[in-house]
Design a protein around this nucleic acid. Sequence first.
DNA 1: GCGCGCCGGGG
DNA 2: GTGTACGGCGCGC
Length: 806
Amino acid sequence: MVKIQIYPTDISYKLVKDRPVVLLYGKTTDGKRICVQDKNFEPYLMVVVKDPESAQKNIKNSNIMDDERKIPITKIEIVKRKYLNQDLRLLKVHTKNPKDISKIKSELREEYSVFEYDLKFTRRYLVDREIVPFVLTDVEGELLNKKSRVSVLDAQSIEQNSTEVLDNINVLAVDIETYNPRGKNVDAEKDPIVMVALYGKDFRKVIVTKKFQTDLDYIEFAEDEAELLTKLKDHINDFKPDCITGYYSDEFDLPYIETRASKNNVKLDIGLDYSPIIVRKGRRTSARMMGIVHLDIYQFIRKAFRTTLDTPRYSLGDVAKELIGAEKDEVDLGKLAKVYNESPEDLEIYCKYNLRDTELTFKLAHELMPNLIELIKAIGLTLYDVSRMGFSQLVEWYLIRRSKDFNELVPNRPSRDELKKRRNQTYKGAFVYKPSPGLYENIVISDFRSLYPSIITTHNISPDTLNCDCCEGKNKVPGLDYWFCENKKGFISTLISELITRRQRINEIIKDKKSKILFARQYAIKTIANAMYGYLGFYISRWYCLECAKSITSYGRYYIQMLIDDAKEQNFKILYGDTDSIFLALEDKTRQDAQKFIESVNHKLPEHMELESEGFYPRGIFVSAKMGSYGAKKKYALLSEKGDIKITGLETIRRNISPIAKRTQLRVLELILKDNDTKKALHYVKKVVDDLRKDKVDIKDLVIHTQLQKELSEYQSIGPHVAVARILKKKGFDVGPGTVIQYVISEDGDKIRDRAKPVEDCKNYDENYYINNQVIPAVDKIFEVIGYSKENLLASLDQKKLDKFF
DNA sequence: GCGCGCCGGGG
DNA sequence: GTGTACGGCGCGC
């Protein structure tokens, strides 16, 4: 018997004689990779029965068949569970093979209500055994002599008695470049991999299938693609990563590598049991390897981290810039195929580019690892799973894991019919107090701290406390015919209380000493707590409860309305309010008055609710309500005390707007907010307009960028960027989907698309287009707010001397 | 205003 | 894989 300690990193299972063997891959305390196998966990499902004893006999004697084979029922236990507000007696029906559960479910569903039949076996294992990946685990068992890249230990017992976490996970980033003569469309069936880069701690490597002169020591040459793949495999095996990471590697790099390996008859057996990369094709493709976690960092960023990011695009370049402040190398990938064929001596920059991408990917994985680990610790699933989950799934698995502590039965996923019904339900959302357009001074912003989570706790909102018998008709939700129990705490409201308390404690500690890990921990908790409201109203949820979701927004409207009423009563001018925040203009009041007001509201709020002071802004502008079809919501710019301008909802970031229009908008906001000088702002616009008229504007300030979305031939309507792309194509440029077309609007022609020209061809730009379609629309709504209609603005721009106008 | 269909990321 | 299940936006009606 051997006693060891491991940090589990991944889990899988295999079938041996129709029985599952759970494989827990991990790392020992002395840094070796290991596989621990557990044969002692049986799949099961739950059956609701009226008379457990007779049903037990009935099910035991029933013949559930899969074709000719009788599905064995190995054990039936009688258990109790809570479900909504009932106490149920259930049968826990066990079998041997996890794959038979689905069949048993179908049979038993004819007669009984069946539950917990669709929880992935390995996830069920982690939840039931209370094993949290990455946490130190005590294992006792026998070492086996098995064909495997790592030691295999057959476990007698597996237990976690510690909270210590693996902190030196060995990550290897991978990225391929492919031969691609056609531009955007990449085809793994046709086009070979020409280079692959690897990046890990103290390790960098680029393998390329063409020889050329270079001094770079990380470049390695391969005779052909088959050799490249073999070398790739050897490097991975030598490096012994716990985790392989890539950017969009679920849907690109790993499936591509796998396809090319089979085309070349290369056995890419990098799994720790010598299995190949397993590609699962579905609505979304994913890739995994036995014993090595595949982390597609793109998935995590897009699904569970996007709310933290400002960038609307999730390309490696944009994300790396925002998160780690690093940029991609700039190369023309469209020329790679040509260079590869005709001038391989120029391949070096592509190798550098390839390595740089893996470096960025590696650093992103490193940067986000604390967040991932804290989510793993909260939710209790593997890095592989957690990094691919969206908010609703994270919440759901948090609830599934915690349901064990509360003896709650896990609700089923909705049926097809149920889904349809749920999808058609809509309900009233948050309250918005529409702003009056205008320029305002001395703005105080105040918001409720974690409004929805605090409502859930305060009002005990939970599917199992809804409309209880004991509190019938008492304490109804404002405007609704629902109530929530006042006598016993609900499952979800209890969990939210716990999360809020835990987060508060962590934040108290962070106040004194900053810690990246603690910050990630409170962030993980916040993520789960904030997602709970959305989860309750999300049609796919197991714990779906429309009444709960409606009640939460109703209480939300109630509290913000109360806040607005109180502010009015105290004679504050209310500028704007949305969901959980209000903007007040101080006018003749002081900041202390506002603070006092906030305190007075806090005084009457329930215990777990709090109104906070978000900030003070010397000046701010709210733009016209008629901007687009989306209304006036969230269109404003604020000047902070430090002098920064914070823009929300104004269209400065759109790509198909010229630099001159963008810059004019920002400068106008600065002059109005910072200098409080509308005259100067108007002068500035006049100067820009005059410069445009006098041809004094640099052409690069006029360039509009638009990305082609499809093949040129597929465009039905010919926009300016498509027209320019056609010209470029005639000139022999390689344009296809993904190419960013840069163009300038010239004077020669009628329609805009005829006037659009490639930058280098444009001699005489169309001043009227830039004035009327770019600069003026970027600022007219701002001027409207301070009393200039568009006509007014245009008229004043035509005057020789503006001063007359004032 | 609504429903359908496609893109996203990657080369 | 104890198999499902995206979401946002643009376009056409």
